[in-house]
């Protein structure tokens, strides 16, 4: 199996975790410092499992750290949505909600993977992501149906990220191959259940589901937004500066 398949799921978790962990110490309430750290810890944990598996499949001697700290932006294959900067708490909530909902569906598919390792990782991650989704959906509704200011911010955040959600449902050759051999799933299949849930949550949140249909894509192929390079520069600085060191 191509290493790139688990690597995609690993990069999604890794990049989102790296974004979320930057909130710690700066959250709107102290309870959220704890919660955001929790979600980030879960996602880093998932990333380690996916990346380790990818490293084994690749068989080039790269472990989770080599893949995390010694790849350039063009080699990352996460979807664009997760690399988006934190913005305000509404931006962070919209990003997490869109991703968590997709991840809960995607991982659900992967628990039935013919590849035992993938099924096992998905099983573990799914439990965590279901909880993340409860939390991000809760905040989406609270902020949407909170004050006029929070409503406006939540709507603006959802509108702003909407064009990055389409990519979640566009398959490429690798997706097709993995769906055909029973290892993975066709991303297109997740679009309707995802949209249905979004409509329900947005209605509860008194928000309008964004209308735009243009999709920005390229993450899976390593063509990212400018934001990712800065994020990696920060994350990778020490191992890159001292490649011979062990930590």
């Amino acid at each position: 199996m191509p290493a790139e398949y688990p690597l995609r799921f690993g990069d999604n978790a890794l990049v989102l975790a790296q974004r979320l962990c930057a909130w710690v110490g700066h959250a709107p309430v102290m309870e959220e410092d704890v919660a955001l750290a929790n979600v980030a810890l879960d996602l880093f944990g998932q990333a380690r499992l996916w990346l380790s598996y990818a490293g084994e499949l690749e068989a080039r001697g790269r472990d989770e750290d080599a893949l995390t700290f010694h790849r350039d932006a063009r080699e990352f294959c996460n979807v664009l949505l997760v690399e988006h900067e934190n913005g305000d708490f509404a931006d962070t909530t919209a990003r997490s909600y869109f991703y968590d909902l997709w991840a809960s569906l995607a991982l659900g598919e992967l628990t039935r993977s013919g590849d035992e390792r993938i099924a096992a990782i998905a099983q573990k991650a799914l439990k965590e992501v279901r909880y993340h989704l409860r939390r991000s959906q809760d905040w989406l509704i609270r902020l949407g149906d909170g004050t006029p200011e929070s409503h406006a911010r939540m709507q603006r955040a959802a509108d702003g990220l909407w064009r990055f959600t389409g990519e979640l449902f566009i398959g490429d050759r690798l997706d097709d191959e993995m769906a055909a051999n029973g290892t993975g799933f066709a991303p297109e299949r997740l679009r309707d259940p995802w949209l249905e849930r979004v409509h329900e949550a947005f209605s509860a949140a008194t928000l309008t589901v964004p209308a735009g249909t243009w999709t920005q894509r390229g993450g899976k192929q390593g063509v990212h937004t400018e934001a990712l390079g800065y994020m990696l520069a920060e994350m990778q600085v020490l191992p890159r500066a001292m490649p011979e060191a062990r930590w």
Partner: peptide
Amino acid sequence: DAWNDGAWVRDAAAEH
């Protein structure tokens, strides 16, 4: 800053 920037979030949670 964390407190001030988070005020609208806390207000929203209370209002909700």
